[in-house]
């Protein structure tokens, strides 16, 4: 709507960015870098490893740059912009080799895809590099489905699962349907809707410790909905949500758990295809 108009003044009245058009995906690359994310690194390393295995199963050579740490999101969402920028710059330097970057988490992928552009908005050279990174960053389910065009072969028993989609995947990354589509490829897996499925689990990074009462009420509702769905387990493609959901379930002394989608897929479809 606003192509005819360009007012570069920083104080110009802003219009909403144009609706995102369907992302164009490249052909399957020979190599990718995996950005594991700090939560996976320390609390869900198996999920990261399973993500690597799934990518390798597609014939892709995976690199895991050992200098990686955190995407910077915790500081960014807490308002510590300078601190977030410093950590972001380290990742930007590290991932500067032009290789596609696969991230097994919607919210960390969202940092690369969207928020680095805000963080480096005032620095032309870094902004250019951030735009480049954004263009070749893919959330894992998106990468498997749209770039690898996987055809999963389910080797597991009949199983019922509930899917929790992270808010970032749903509303920032537009990848919320990808996990669904991947799961739909599994013949023996039935995905069951749960109550208020599109609602946030209450994690929100530091929100969960700044507002523990409200966050606690949200995660109690989410875990209750997941448990009562009739599913045997919950699947999610975001370890932030999983840490929240599983930590709460353990505190509630419930046996029900959530699992990362990568681990679930590898368990059912792993090995040679």
């Amino acid at each position: 709507m606003s192509e005819l108009f360009y007012d570069a003044a920083p104080n110009a009245t802003r219009v909403a960015p144009a609706r995102e058009t369907e992302r164009r995906y490249p052909d399957k690359p020979a190599e990718v870098s995996l950005f594991g994310t700090c939560v996976v690194d320390l609390f869900f390393p198996e999920a990261g490893l399973d993500a690597i295995r799934l990518l390798e199963q597609q014939g892709i050579r995976v690199h895991f740059p050992q200098q990686q740490s955190c995407c910077g999101q915790p500081a960014w969402t807490s308002g510590y912009r300078e601190e977030a920028r410093a950590v972001a710059l380290a990742q930007l330097d590290l991932l500067d080799d032009g290789r596609p970057v696969v991230v097994p988490s919607g919210s960390c992928a969202g940092m690369f895809r969207h928020h680095y552009l805000e963080l480096f908005a005032e620095e032309p050279e870094n902004l250019r590099r951030a735009e480049d990174l954004a263009g070749r960053t893919f959330e894992l389910t998106e990468f498997l489905l749209k770039v690898c065009k996987v055809q999963l072969v389910d080797r597991g028993e009949k199983h019922k699962i509930a899917l929790h989609t992270s808010c970032t995947a749903r509303r920032e990354m537009n990848t919320h349907l990808h996990a669904r589509e991947l799961l739909a490829q599994l013949d023996n897996v039935e995905r069951i809707d749960h109550d208020h499925e599109s609602e946030c689990c209450g994690f929100g990074g530091t929100f969960s410790v700044r507002m523990p009462d409200i966050s606690g009420a949200m995660v109690l509702d989410k875990t209750t909905a997941l448990r009562q769905s009739g599913a045997a387990e919950a699947i999610s493609a975001d370890c932030g949500c999983l840490m929240n959901i599983n930590g709460a379930l353990e505190k509630q002394q419930q046996a029900f758990r959530g699992r990362h989608l990568a681990s679930f897929l590898w368990e059912r479809c792993g090995g040679e295809q």
């Binding site: 609390f43 869900f44 390393p45 995976v62 895991f64 969960s208 966050s215 505190k251």
Partner: peptide, 24 residues
């Protein structure tokens, strides 16, 4: 405040950095 709603988080026995290095 985390443990008001959650069990205490326990790190994994090995980090993804470690596992990935060995695996790759």
């Amino acid at each position: 405040p985390w443990t008001e709603n959650h069990s205490a988080p326990v790190p994994a026995a090995r980090s993804l950095h470690d596992l990935a290095r060995d695996h790759l």
